Structures are given as C-alpha cells and as structure tokens.
Amino acid sequence: MLKGLFSKSSSGCLGIYLRPDYVALAVFEGGQLVSNKSVSIPSSEQWLTSISQLVSETGAKKLPVSLAISPHFYQQLQVDKPNVPNDELASALPFAIKDLITESVFELAIDYYDVPPVPMMTEKVTVVYSQKSIIQKAVDVMAELDLPINNIATEELALTNLMTAEKETQMLIHQVQGDDVVVSIVRDNMLYFSRKIRGFQALGQQVEPLDTFLMDGLGLELQRSLDYVIGQLKIADVSKILLAVPGESGDLIASNLSETLDRKVDVFQFQQQGVDVNAMPAIGAGVSQ
C-alpha cells in the first residue's frame, strides 16, 4: 500500500479517474456503485469544468473523493528498501532515487508502496513520483468543487481494489481505449507486479475476424508474464485470468487468448449493468475496502 500521498483507497462516496484526455467519475452509496460516467476533454486544463459537469449530472456534490491518476502523470520504479526506521522512510526516498531519474527530486511528489516479499530477494519498495504541479492541480480542482480528498491512487493500485485475489494468484489484463495494455498480478489483495505491453493499442477495436498477428503477439507477451510469476516472483501460479478491454469483442478476445494460453480467460464482470471499462480506475479508487 502506498503510504502517504498515493494510497489504496479505503472508503468514500466518489471515485474520480484523471487523464489528459478524459475524466471518469463513479458514485457510491452504502458501499455500492450506483453510477459511473466519463467525459472526453482536450487537456487536463479542463478537469475543473468536466468534473463539475459530472458532479452536477450525478448530484454527487460535496462528497469525499478518492482519486486515481493515469500513468501519463507519474512514473514508478522498484528500489531496495532503505535501511531506516519506517517513520523516516518517506524522507529517505528522494536520496534513494535521485541518481536513477533525470528529474530534480525537488520538483517531484514522491511516495511509495511495499512490494510483497519474494523468497531469497532483498526487501523492496515501489517508488511512485509525479510532478508536484500535477498533484497540486488535482488538489486545487477538488478544493474548488468542495470535494474533500480521502487519498490518491495510481491506476494500477486502483484496479487492484477490484480484484478478489485472496489465497490465489490472479492476472488482470486491462486496457483504456487507445492506450497500452496493462497486465497486473495480484495475490492476497496485494499488487505483486504490473507491466505495460506496448504495441496493442488497437486491441479494443478488434472485430471478428481478429487480427491473428496482433493476438499471437499479445499471447506471447502474456505467456512471458505468466512465466515471470513462477520463475521470478516465486508465488503460486495464476489461477484466474480476467480481461477488461473496451469495445464489443471482449468475449471473442477472451476466447482467443484462452486457446493461445491453454488456460481459461474470463471477461471481467461487474454486478451492476452499464459499467464503462474506461471508468474502471475510478470505480477501483472509490470502492470500499
């Protein structure tokens, strides 16, 4: 779990997903998702206007919010956990990463979350860093709309909240329209591993017949991730694979991948109807833990 600025969401009535090209909002009542909406925007300069519009449409004014921000606005890397007391760890992070990045640490908002322990490996943390100006913009927008912020999550951690991976290893294959495919490995409700698979932006636009070259390439990359679970993470093999991609061909893509990987791939299902795959990070940010 991220320890400060960026964290897994714990509670709240709103989840908001911030991207440079659209924003999505999810409304919860009594811990249940009751509404989800998204709107396209030309740039992050329209966050205030677009979120105000969504809040007005849903009647979700002055409710606490958990934010998820897209990877466009942050980077992350794993480092050995600094050998300092836990209450000093946050202040030690800039020194741990300053030689590994090109940005000035003084211009960054920096936080971390623990990497689940792996046998025979040094204890590590995943450091997340973003330009302070981006985080401040998000904070200012929420303040302007009188939406108190509970916490801020990375996209990967927001999606982890939607998994029910207790005592089993699950893989989530997720894509926002036009973006890279993101693969996450979750076990015991902890994010063990995530990676972007580039070159498959057209996946959500597939129709029958599927592009054989594209699907074979994706299958190969997914198999590499499955092999990594056993070979490097040293945890139990993936027992459930879930697919969440935009478009109307989810079942067709899942069936194709099931044949390629020789294991069942299921389309991610929500209990509620009418859930937009592109709003999943907003839902994950706002879902009760």
Rank of each mutant, 00 (worst) to 15 (best):
E168Y: 12
L218W: 01
D146T: 01
K37A: 03
T160E: 03
I197Q: 12
S56G: 11
K81E: 14
L243F: 08
S56A: 14
D188L: 07
N36A: 06
G231Q: 15
A96I: 01
L18W: 11
L48R: 06
V182R: 14
G199M: 07
G247L: 03
V229L: 07
L18I: 10
E221C: 09
R224G: 15
A285E: 01
D114R: 10
A60Y: 00
V125S: 07
P82M: 12
I185N: 08
G274S: 04
F28S: 06
V84L: 07
V105Q: 15
L108Q: 07
E156P: 00
Q170R: 13
I97H: 07
G4Y: 02
V128P: 02
L233D: 07
N151W: 03
T169V: 07
M142H: 01
L242P: 02
K61F: 00
E88L: 13
Y228M: 11
S104A: 10
L252M: 11
L159W: 10
S255C: 09
G12I: 03
E259M: 10
Q205F: 13
Q271T: 14
E45A: 05
M190L: 13
F95C: 09
M280K: 04
G204K: 05
L33S: 11
P42T: 10
D140A: 03
E107D: 13
D227T: 12
L89I: 08
D251A: 13
E88W: 07
A24I: 05
V245R: 02
Q76G: 13
N86I: 06
I241M: 14
A254H: 08
A153P: 03
P20Y: 11
L100M: 12
F73H: 04
V238H: 04
D237Q: 13
I51E: 05
K240S: 03
A92H: 14
Q75P: 02
A138E: 00
G199Q: 04
P116E: 14
K124I: 05
T160R: 12
T212M: 12
I173R: 04
V79G: 01
T154I: 00
I152K: 00
V287C: 12
R187I: 00
D179I: 02
A285H: 05
E248H: 09
